[in-house]
Design a protein around this nucleic acid. Structure first.
Lengths: 111, 111
DNA sequence: ACCAAGGTACGAACAATTTCGTACCTCAGG
DNA sequence: CCTGAGGTACGAAATTGTTCGTACCTTGGT
């Protein structure tokens, strides 16, 4: 079965406020950072991120990410797939994903 | 008298989480967007943004922006100046400020 | 010395967010 | 058909964030 896409906003309707609010949470930002780092943009399982939070809370966070337009969620009934909306994000907010990769505190510059 | 700079984080220590949390609020984002749009980077008075909130709340928001490293606050005693830390932001998170100018919902594409 | 304007400190009220418990749904595999 | 794994719905508790009232500080002007 092909799995049905749960709907988020159109590419042109991505709202910077919603995106920043979504990325303000550490758990959600770590998910997007991980997705952004994988240049193959392959679909990931929802539980492949091992977040240190309950599954109910994960449901909440993935919903926030989808409603912000950052990910697609594919519903297979008893499991769920996640895919980064890289093209849409890059079109609307070019460079945003690159920031996430540059995000971690500068431990890379030990003077 | 020259005014004393209130201290925020070093340029290298800017944290993406703190920055996103700071920009997640509409009032704070509007301030940074306004500063980012002005390429002269001149110092602004704190009350030149006419935010629809009380001055106590403004104090709170400007403090959040300073602690995130986005602005410098210059204390003159009975009034305060604000300046965007453009160079530091661009160094640590290149392209971030450009996103703010591209931020408003796409009303510019009426098909 | 006084006052008004701009700003801060502290604290409380209010609102939003994060988290999880309980109960339930869906599908794959015996 | 039963069970287990993965996921959602709903609601409540806890945490965090926003807002402002009251009181106070600082400086420039009168």
């Amino acid at each position: 079965m092909a799995g049905r896409n749960l709907d988020g906003p159109e590419a042109d309707a991505l709202d910077l406020g919603a995106v920043f609010r979504a990325l303000a949470d550490e758990h959600r930002r770590s998910v997007i950072t991980e997705l952004a780092t994988d240049r193959s943009d392959s679909e990931r399982g929802c539980n492949s991120f091992d977040l240190p939070i309950s599954k109910q809370t994960q449901t909440h966070h993935f919903r926030v990410l989808r409603e912000a337009g950052l990910i697609d969620e594919i519903d297979y009934g008893n499991r769920k797939g996640v895919r980064l909306r890289r093209a849409d994000i890059e079109k609307r907010f070019p460079g945003l994903l690159a920031l996430l990769e540059a995000g971690p505190p500068a431990d890379t510059a030990p003077r």
